[in-house]
């Protein structure tokens, strides 16, 4: 009993701020809300049925989210690991470089998106001017669906890669230097040392990074909101942004709640799959 009293402050906080909203979303997802009359009508699973079976936009949006994740996660992780390998050992200026790559992580997503939107302008944009110098005529990045998707992925990777880089640096620094020395003495090449020793020892970190990056990529919202607004031709309309539109633009709170539940299940399943793959890989 006493124990319960001691944890009660945080338990109450947990109930109010975490469990409460979660239950609310579950309830809302089974209602149809009218924001103007402030009335919620219980409709059972109708919202889910509509999203999964009837609304063609839904699957288009899920597909966009999957493409976004498939582009972002591997690119982010490969870049993060490359940077970490280069920046895990001390050398003159290493702190400067780490800071440079980490700084975007803590800058405002909106500001970041505005700057890139400006740089990626079709005519006279900085990127296209640079490309013109080497004789490439760049596309109108944010106005063509495929290029727009590529552009939001790449600019998001550049913004967030610093976080994963730091996680990888921490993991690399935790590997005793003697492992590498021993392997070098035994004749292993740099690639063999990476492949046979470093990479396996990084596996737990790789899993965590993969999971949080996947979750993050499904939740991406402010970036898309500012850079493309979901366009062109809904080419970058991803799930989180679509939920926002349904909820706060069209005021379909019940429908948006149902979509949020579906997104939760998708992300949960992806996480479980990743953890299971790792388990199997470790055997």
């Amino acid at each position: 009993m006493e124990a319960w009293l001691f944890v009660s402050p945080s338990a109450v906080g947990f109930l109010i701020f975490f469990l409460g909203p979660l239950c609310a979303v579950v309830y809302f997802s089974m209602t149809e809300w009218n924001l103007l009359t402030q009335q919620a009508a219980f409709v059972g699973l109708a919202n889910f049925e509509d999203a999964l079976l009837e609304n063609p936009d839904f699957w288009h949006v899920v597909r966009n989210s999957v493409i976004f994740a498939l582009g972002l996660v591997p690119l982010n992780m490969a870049l993060a690991l490359t940077l970490a390998l280069a920046l895990s050992r001390p050398f003159f200026g290493v702190v400067f470089f780490r800071t440079v790559f980490f700084a975007p992580v803590v800058t405002s997503a909106i500001a970041w998106a505005i700057v890139w939107k400006f740089l990626l302008q079709g005519e006279g944009g900085f990127i296209n001017q640079m490309l013109a110098i080497v004789g490439i005529s760049g596309p109108n990045w944010l106005r063509e669906p495929n290029w727009a998707m590529a552009a939001v992925i790449v600019t998001r990777v550049i913004k967030m890669v610093g976080l994963n880089m730091i996680l990888y640096i921490a993991a690399l620094q935790a590997i005793p230097r003697d492992y590498e020395a021993a392997a070098r003495l035994e004749g292993a090449s740099r690639w063999q040392i990476f492949r046979m020793i470093i990479w396996p020892l990084l596996a737990p970190t790789t899993l965590i990074i993969m999971v949080i990056t996947t979750i993050g990529s499904f939740k991406v919202f402010d970036h898309i909101y500012q850079m493309t607004g979901g366009g062109p031709e809904n080419g970058t309309l991803v799930l989180a942004f679509y939920i926002y539109q349904q909820g706060f633009k069209f005021f379909n709170i019940g429908y948006a709640s149902a979509l949020a539940m579906i997104m939760f299940v998708i992300v949960m399943m992806l996480t479980i799959v990743q953890v299971m793959l790792r388990r199997k890989g470790a055997e």
């Binding site: 003697d178 492992y179 035994e186 004749g187 292993a188 046979m196």
Partner: peptide, 29 residues
């Protein structure tokens, strides 16, 4: 290069690779 000098070293920390069995540790080189 170290590997071409014909030397083998035993480290104070042992430096055994934690993800490999004894057999694979010994056979690594």
């Amino acid at each position: 290069q170290p590997a071409q000098r014909g030397v083998a070293m035993v480290f104070q920390s042992y430096a055994l690779y934690p993800h490999l069995t004894v057999r694979d540790n010994m056979g690594f080189g």
